[in-house]
Nucleic acid binder design. Structure first.
Length: 558
RNA sequence: GCGCCUGUAGCUCAGUAGGAUAGAGCAACGGCCUUCUAAGCCGUGUGCCAGAGGUUCGAAUCCUCUCAGGCGCACCA
């Protein structure tokens, strides 16, 4: 258990005991136990922890907050605890000041746990499915996928650090309408390249990559499929190009530092009969009905304002239908305890109906959540540039990584909470200037490595390691920041907000840089020097751990 | 028209499930390298928390309404 958990648990216990005693002795009368919530005050003078219980109780006890606070404090037994002093302040806050040594425990924790410092077993024994990107395999990935990639991959890492057994999953949309369009587009290009005059479909994929695929294909196979019946030919072309695209997507994502455990094919849901059986289940439950020749899901029974089509009048299931079957498979066949998807804001309308459908087939929809990320706006020369895959003008993920680098791309896309509308200023990102916060964090790490390289032979092994020699305010601030790391991971997981980790690394780097300027490590006093080396080693470890979660490198030299 | 997200310093954004005097970075200005990496540090000031009501000891945070922007509201995905 980490130092902060220990302290918080201890204070809560002391509070609970005091409350119970004051009730037993009839000083206070309460009916329901209040929430014993601890907060960390912004102001230093208010102590490390603070509670507002006294202000929650006046109604129940018919006493003033001040009186309640004084009573409780009177009953608190702090012997042998981390608490140094308790003060009542303001309208009735009870503030706890800790003994000036608690921060050193964080350093001990780090020294013992090393690369595992920050991990917890909160979700031990539970499985977690993280589905993200799931870009259409009809073309290369664009910049919009980059944000989803960073959010999904890092959230998956965060979940793993809280104890979950994590599966990263890519859902391949290799069935349905857009594959038909893909086939039509390939087919026309194939025939055009071989000299036929055919009009390009109005809503087809116009990107050059389609033409390139067919050039390559003709190079390999020639014109032998020209005489084939059109559907059969399209099938062959799609198979060829899909395989090519998926290989490329996989390769590009690995460049981006993302490795999937499962590539799940939508088509496999048709092949296995999962779609059919899911539909049967919905029908049996009375949640599906026929109208105008189509089969509908009764989404209105689950709070939606309209129903949704499952099977079109032409007999082809919708994407929605496949999605229900897919998520049923996640929960009921593969039995994940938690499933999270990352979707762009343009899909948010889909969330409620999918949750409704999952509830209908017997899944506890509370285990399913979608992180909605606001779409990325690309700025070039200060102007908004629209991305459109159809028009083939998209900035490809790989272009971005080439220009900005993997570290900056991942860091940047995870800098703001998924909720925030995000402007990606390409010109600024290309600059690789110090404006880019990733350098700030990496620089802190490189600085530490540099000191440690020079210190190795100077540290006196015979001298005792005495943390209590660390007494400067910059040292305490750094220690406190280190002690917060495990909390940050837990909060990031609970709120499904991986960007907290990115911001934490900046805070940690800042605390270190301040320390660096205020305190020298390489000094005469061998005991203090040893303590400071221990402090920067702990910092180095936590920067490595946090950057590791982000998938950003921690360079030893810069 | 209905739904979701957003609105906090000149700009980009935090604000820890309702707390105490509203916080960073960038930009501006002024300091700090004969000593461990100046890609750094320290200091200076800036706010009708979009607006109006409400809930209570207490609201940037919760509720209602209004305004502004983004995104949805297909037998597309």
């Amino acid at each position: 258990m980490y130092i902060r958990e220990k302290i918080e648990e201890q204070i809560k216990e002391i509070m609970a005991n005091a409350l119970n005693k004051s009730v037993e002795e009839g000083v206070l009368s309460i009916e329901t136990m209040p929430d014993l919530f601890l907060e960390m005050p912004r102001e230093k003078e208010h102590g490390e922890y603070s509670t507002n219980v006294a202000m929650q109780l006046p109604r129940q006890t018919k006493k003033s907050p001040r009186f309640i606070a004084e009573t409780l404090v009177g009953y608190m037994e702090t012997e042998g605890s981390y608490i140094d002093a308790i003060e009542i302040a303001g309208p009735g806050f009870i503030n706890f000041k800790l003994k000036k040594t608690w921060q050193y425990s964080a350093l001990k924790d780090i020294a013992v746990l090393k690369e595992n410092y920050g991990r917890s077993d909160k979700n031990k024994g539970k499985t977690f499915n993280m589905e993200f990107i799931s870009a259409n395999p009809t073309g290369p990935m664009h910049m919009g996928n980059a944000r989803g990639g960073a959010i999904g991959d890092i959230l998956a890492a965060v979940a793993g650090w809280t104890g979950y057994e994590v599966t990263r999953e890519f859902y391949i949309n290799d069935a349905g309408n857009q594959i038909v369009k893909f086939g039509d587009s390939l087919d026309v290009r194939y025939r055009q390249l071989l000299g036929e005059t055919v009009d390009f479909p109005k809503d087809g994929y116009q990107g050059d990559d389609i033409t390139e695929h067919m050039k390559d294909f003709i190079g390999l196979k020639g014109d032998q499929y020209l005489t084939l019946e059109s559907d059969a030919r399209k099938k062959i072309l799609v198979e060829y190009a899909l395989e090519k695209n998926l290989t490329q997507i996989k390769k590009d994502l690995e460049t981006y530092g993302i490795y999937y455990d499962v590539w799940f094919s939508e088509q496999s849901l048709y092949d296995s009969g999962a779609i059919e059986s899911t539909l049967e289940l919905l029908k049996k439950g009375g949640y599906a009905f026929e109208e105008d020749g189509a089969v509908w899901f009764k989404a209105t029974s689950f709070g939606s304002d309209k129903d949704d089509v499952l099977i079109r009048a032409n007999g082809i299931p919708t994407y929605f239908m496949a999605d229900i079957a897919y998520h049923m498979d996640k929960f009921l066949n593969r039995k994940f305890d938690r499933c999270i998807n990352v979707w762009g804001a343009d899909h948010h309308g889909h969330v409620a109906r999918l949750k409704g459908a999952l509830t209908a087939v017997g899944v506890n929809a509370g285990q399913f959540d979608v992180v909605i990320m606001q779409l990325v706006r690309l700025l070039r020369n200060g102007e908004v540039a629209r991305m459109s895959k159809r028009q083939g003008k998209a900035i490809a993920l790989t272009d971005l990584i080439d220009e900005v680098g993997v570290d900056a791309t991942r860091f940047f896309f995870n800098l703001r909470s998924p909720d925030s509308h995000f402007d990606f200023d390409l010109d600024l990102a290309i600059e690789e200037s110090s404006d880019n916060p990733v350098f700030y964090v990496q620089y802190a790490h490189a600085r530490i490595c540099s000191i440690i390289r020079q210190m190795e032979e100077e540290v006196d092994k015979t001298v005792p390691l005495d943390y209590t020699r660390l007494t400067e305010k910059e040292e305490f601030h750094l220690l406190e920041t280190l002690s917060l790391f495990p909390n940050e991971i837990l909060i990031a997981e609970e709120r499904l907000d991986p960007s907290r980790i990115t911001r934490y690394t900046i805070e940690l780097a800042s605390a270190f840089h301040s320390f660096y300027n205020a305190c020298h490590v390489r000094i005469e006093d061998p005991i203090l020097m040893k303590a400071r080396v221990a402090l920067i080693e702990g910092t180095q470890q936590v920067i490595q751990n946090s950057l590791g979660i982000l998938g950003v490198s921690a360079p030893e030299r810069m």
